[in-house]
Simulated assay, not measured.
Amino acid sequence: MSTPVVNHTWKAMTAAEREQFDEDGFLLIPGALSPDEVEFYRAAVDRVYQNSPSAAGGDALHLLSAVKNCPELAGMLDHPAVFGYVWSILGWNAHVYHSHIDVHPTIREQKPFWWHWHQDGGRQNREIETDPRPRLSVKLAFWLSDVSEPGRGNLTIVPGSHKTNWLVGPPRRDIEWPQPEGAIQVTVNPGDVLFFDRRIWHARSDNFSDITRKVAFFGYTYRWIAIRDEVADLPEQAWWDTLTPVQRQLLGGIGDGTGDHSWGHYPETTPLYGELAARGLLDPSYPPLIP
């Protein structure tokens, strides 16, 4: 399950990047994955797809629990080219609560209209009463196919919409409705990564091209928020011990009850805290990055 060697120094988000992220709700990181990495991860996703029921009919695949179902993707969890954006926002007491692998082949016939626009978080968007809603989580999208032109199943977003609780839309999702004002299709190359605020209003567009859309999404949140992915049996998997302590933390690993736990009361026993401390990356001016 070895991944291509990646030589990147861990680094924090810059002040300019933080300002742009706060304003737009997303950042695009071009070329975060090397060509060898793209080939490795794409081959792993292809194997998962070919072994799925979707492959027989050439149907789309939306598979939750990315690493559980494709352990080769573990290197994405804390990929050094982009992981700094995650802990720069959430700090060291974080984990992956939701992840998925998406494979979308060409659509040959127009499907009935459906309003796909949403914010991530599900019931969070009904049950939290503040305006705007709190960020709570961020997401990394690792693109493994050429989506450099519109019409290839591009992620569609409304820049700056992450501080808007409601989007004007149809009374029912099956009623034809124009795209939201300001919506754009994000164009990306294989190896690009999109980092975005879970609150940004977004939707997947249809893929009418001859290129199969392939992407892996990892959503990160605070460890005191429950994990949606299926992770309970991961410590029993043969490959679990090949992961780093930080990767195990991100997949829901916690201590033995005498130290590290999801509330973060014992930072010195939390793997990501220790790694950031050793690298001199704890920032006392930013609360999530201090004890």
Rank of each mutant, 00 (worst) to 15 (best):
196 F>C: 03
150 P>V: 11
237 Q>N: 07
6 V>E: 06
235 P>Y: 06
149 E>Q: 14
202 H>P: 06
291 P>A: 14
265 H>S: 14
223 R>I: 08
272 L>H: 01
182 G>E: 11
205 S>E: 15
53 P>R: 06
132 P>H: 01
184 I>S: 08
184 I>Y: 11
23 E>K: 15
60 A>G: 14
282 L>D: 10
204 R>W: 09
207 N>T: 07
245 P>W: 02
52 S>D: 13
174 D>T: 13
235 P>K: 02
235 P>T: 02
110 Q>W: 11
108 R>F: 15
157 I>F: 11
129 E>F: 12
159 P>K: 09
232 A>N: 12
89 I>P: 00
12 A>T: 15
270 T>Q: 13
138 V>P: 00
163 K>P: 09
51 N>R: 14
140 L>I: 04
262 S>W: 14
194 L>F: 06
137 S>A: 15
26 F>G: 01
129 E>M: 11
262 S>M: 14
129 E>R: 10
237 Q>M: 14
138 V>W: 00
53 P>S: 06
269 T>M: 07
63 L>Y: 01
124 Q>E: 10
160 G>P: 03
174 D>S: 06
265 H>F: 13
167 L>N: 00
182 G>P: 09
179 Q>Y: 08
175 I>F: 05
228 R>W: 11
76 M>Y: 13
206 D>I: 12
27 L>I: 10
134 P>I: 14
207 N>G: 06
271 P>I: 08
194 L>G: 03
155 L>I: 07
166 W>E: 14
63 L>P: 04
129 E>Q: 12
19 E>A: 15
38 V>S: 04
188 V>R: 00
235 P>S: 05
80 P>I: 05
178 P>Q: 02
256 D>H: 02
101 I>V: 13
169 G>R: 00
10 W>A: 12
11 K>A: 12
279 R>W: 03
37 E>Q: 13
223 R>N: 03
205 S>M: 09
54 S>D: 11
276 L>C: 03
236 E>W: 01
153 G>K: 08
88 S>G: 15
33 L>Y: 06
26 F>S: 04
268 E>H: 08
83 F>E: 01
120 D>N: 07
245 P>M: 02
137 S>V: 06
250 L>S: 05
258 T>E: 09
238 A>V: 10
104 H>C: 11
107 I>Q: 14
62 H>C: 13
265 H>R: 12
35 P>K: 04
15 A>N: 10
158 V>M: 00
68 K>E: 15
249 Q>A: 08
13 M>A: 10
84 G>Q: 11
65 S>F: 08
109 E>C: 06
224 W>M: 07
244 T>R: 02
222 Y>G: 09
260 D>N: 14
256 D>E: 05
16 A>P: 02
